[in-house]
Design a protein around this nucleic acid. Structure first.
Lengths: 218, 218
DNA sequence: TAGATTGTTAATCGATTAACAATC
DNA sequence: TAGATTGTTAATCGATTAACAATC
């Protein structure tokens, strides 16, 4: 009832928790404290407790969190119980790799349709999916109940693809192209921007042990 | 001289600025204001001015920023003038895609060596690079002056690979595996974690227009 | 009971935004 | 000169951390 706004930072940490909890569960560990989670995930224990407390009282004082129960709860929060259908546009190296991946995405999402603007690729098979031309995108999205779009086209074409996704009624986009995309407010865009990660990595690398010498910029 | 600490958030925005400036430069646009940048990049103009001002006075009051000059400056800040050599471990779909990519990485980084723990892959060619066994990693890193490592192995093996990178003297790691890695303080780790992006995307997608109904968690 | 650990409030820290004098 | 826009300080906002009562 109380409409407490949950910050993005919090939501972004949930998958990190979930992953590690899954590891623990596989090792048959039944209980974990915020202290232990914090150590393993490089986070402050208080932050972890606070994050989880936004969604309910999942722990037991003096004991900690039940691993499997917490997994179940986080999966509910992230809506990983229901599967979502995904369309991917752009069958370059990265796009094809993602199609073949699929195991990772399987957690709750499944690529069910693949598109490419290059009509010469029409009909090509990628991991049992037939590459379709862009003209079929809107129809397929509706017919296959696709709610998420993945963009793996060159930067220059990404906004155009995003527009087509939005027009087709998609509600979430995972964008691998190195551009800032615009969409209507109802559509959520997440960026998987490893080129930016690589560029900013260089910034931190010249200083051997954290201190800089002779750098005019600082 | 004054050792002002520049926050991560600031450094992470620099590549975003750089990209858009490159677009402007290609369109022969010579000047841009923080206002225009803000509109295109969905950022507050004051934030952009503040970010840039950490590194120097790059703009002209009443005029704006000279596009090419700003590009040059940001490239200096991010150290994109010098090329860095990169090693990649894990020649699955994603690893191979990245090797074939390379154009994007070319900005300042070049994959010069590829490794895989699977010895049956030894000698395989990927985009003109020969897959090497892990035993050769340390030697190659030193011989080829490699300073960055890319990890595209399964989660379970990622920490082991990271440890080997660190032992070999690498100073920056781009990690694609869905785990939190530990490294010694001198080594910088950036995560390219699209599976986490995908998981958190689902969270935001059930609410058609931002308001939720009947959700017990909030 | 004593020890441990949560959930939560309060304190701190940091980042974003607003405002405006300086100046092109 | 008038209009525009920076660089920067101050105000605001939000997120992280510390602290501790509640309680298992």
């Amino acid at each position: 009832m109380k409409p407490i706004k949950i910050s993005e930072a919090v939501v972004r940490r949930l998958p990190i928790y979930l992953r590690f909890l899954n590891e623990l569960s596989l090792s048959n560990i039944q209980t974990v404290s915020s202290q232990e989670l914090g150590e393993k995930l490089d986070l402050n224990p208080a932050q972890i407790r606070k994050d989880l407390a936004y969604f309910g009282e999942f722990g037991r004082k003096g004991v900690g969190y039940n691993v499997d129960y917490l997994i179940e709860k986080i999966r509910q929060i992230l809506k990983l119980d229901k599967t979502m259908n995904v369309a991917l546009v752009g069958t370059g190296n990265l796009g094809r790799a993602l199609c073949n991946y699929n195991m990772y995405i399987k957690d709750n999402m499944k690529i069910v349709a693949v598109f490419d603007a290059d009509t010469s690729k029409k009909g090509t098979l990628i991991n049992r999916l037939t590459v379709q031309p862009m003209q079929e995108l809107s129809d397929s999205v509706k017919r296959l109940d696709i709610s998420v779009g993945i963009i793996t086209v060159p930067a220059a074409e990404a906004q155009n693809v995003a527009d087509q996704f939005v027009a087709a009624g998609i509600r979430g986009i995972l964008n691998f192209a190195p551009v800032v995309l615009k969409a209507t407010p109802g559509v959520r865009i997440h960026n998987a921007d490893f080129t930016a990660e690589l560029l900013s990595l260089a910034y931190y690398m010249d200083n051997i042990n954290g201190s800089k010498e002779g750098d005019e910029t600082q």
